[in-house]
Computed example of a mutant assay.
Amino acid sequence: MSSTALTRAQAACRAAFTLTLLIFLALASVLVGVQILGLVLVQPGWISWASDALFTPSIGAAVLFGLVAFVSGYLNPGASEE
């Protein structure tokens, strides 16, 4: 792989890493936030809705983030190689 192609792949992995992390954190934060609001405002429907609607997408985003992190670990040089 040429140096330019490797640099582009590293930049793409870094962007994908950041994007998937932000998506996961946003989904998980909304999930927990709505559940806390439902608990404080005594709205059990909110707690159930948040779990039903956001739990699976949050887990899916976490898995995608983990896969992107795994792949980017192979493309980005680590501290042990230096």
Score class of each variant (00 low, 15 high):
M1Y: 08
S2E: 12
S2K: 06
S2W: 04
S3C: 03
S3R: 02
S3Y: 00
L6H: 03
L6Q: 03
L6V: 05
L6G: 00
L6I: 06
T7E: 14
T7Y: 08
R8L: 09
R8C: 02
Q10T: 00
Q10S: 02
A11I: 02
C13F: 04
R14E: 11
A15I: 12
A16P: 01
A16K: 07
F17H: 14
F17P: 01
F17N: 11
L19W: 07
L19G: 03
T20C: 04
L22H: 01
L22V: 10
L22P: 00
L22I: 08
I23D: 04
L25T: 09
A26D: 11
A26V: 12
L27G: 01
A28K: 07
A28Q: 06
A28I: 06
A28P: 01
S29F: 11
V30L: 07
V30T: 08
L31V: 08
V32C: 02
V32K: 09
V34S: 04
Q35L: 05
Q35E: 15
I36A: 05
I36V: 15
I36P: 00
I36N: 00
L39N: 08
V40Y: 05
V40Q: 04
L41G: 00
L41A: 13
L41E: 04
V42T: 15
V42R: 10
V42S: 13
Q43K: 14
P44E: 13
G45P: 03
G45C: 02
G45A: 04
G45I: 05
I47C: 09
I47T: 14
S48W: 08
S48Q: 14
S48E: 13
S48G: 12
W49E: 02
A50I: 05
S51E: 12
S51Y: 15
D52W: 08
A53V: 08
A53D: 08
L54A: 05
L54P: 01
L54G: 02
T56N: 13
P57L: 10
P57A: 10
P57T: 11
P57E: 11
S58R: 06
S58G: 15
S58P: 07
S58D: 05
S58Q: 04
I59K: 12
I59R: 11
G60E: 07
G60W: 03
A61C: 13
A61N: 06
A62G: 13
V63D: 10
L64H: 08
F65S: 05
F65I: 02
G66R: 09
G66T: 06
G66K: 06
G66P: 05
L67F: 15
L67Y: 11
V68R: 07
V68D: 06
A69P: 01
A69H: 03
A69M: 11
A69D: 12
F70D: 11
F70T: 13
F70Q: 12
V71C: 06
V71F: 12
S72W: 09
G73R: 10
L75K: 07
L75N: 07
N76Y: 08
N76D: 12
P77W: 09
P77V: 06
P77T: 08
G78V: 01
G78S: 14
A79L: 15
S80T: 11
S80V: 14
E81K: 15
E81N: 13
E82R: 15
E82K: 13
